[in-house]
Design a protein around this nucleic acid. Structure first.
Length: 115
DNA sequence: CGATTGACGTTAA
DNA sequence: TTTAACGCCAATC
């Protein structure tokens, strides 16, 4: 029985699941993930959850803020690691270490649309 | 249990 | 235009 464990427990699981399914060469935003999870009012939690995901199967480096800025690069250890990982996956940057969202933004709602 | 923080986002001044 | 504060939700201290 045990009814479904509170959805709250799924919060992290949801974040991880979504981020984990981000294809390489693509990036997503906290707001988009938060919205997909259902707590779009708390994009902060998404980032917070991701901070715990470093060291797991979740490619947190593919998650950036709305501006495409690598807000959490400092959580990866080396400050340039995040940018390096993204570039290594084929992601391009603008001038200020910001991901070209127009090119690499992964829309969870639009994932059906094949390129 | 209470207060603070946190990889954001949005609106106001 | 730029800067500041608020709001949200959950986790951590």
């Amino acid at each position: 029985m045990q009814k479904e464990k509170k959805a709250k427990d799924n919060f992290y699981a949801k974040v991880y699941a979504l981020v984990r399914k981000i294809p390489e060469g693509k990036v997503s935003t906290y707001g988009a993930i938060a919205e997909k999870i259902g707590t779009k009012l708390s994009a902060r939690m998404v980032g917070y959850a991701l901070s715990q995901c470093v060291g797991t199967d979740v490619p947190a480096h593919r998650v950036v803020n709305r501006f495409g800025a690598l807000t959490g690069k400092h959580h990866f250890g080396p400050p340039d690691l995040m940018k390096r990982l993204l570039q290594d996956e084929g992601i391009t940057f603008n001038a200020d270490e910001t991901v070209k969202m127009e090119r690499h933004f992964y829309d969870f709602k639009r994932q059906r649309r094949r390129r």
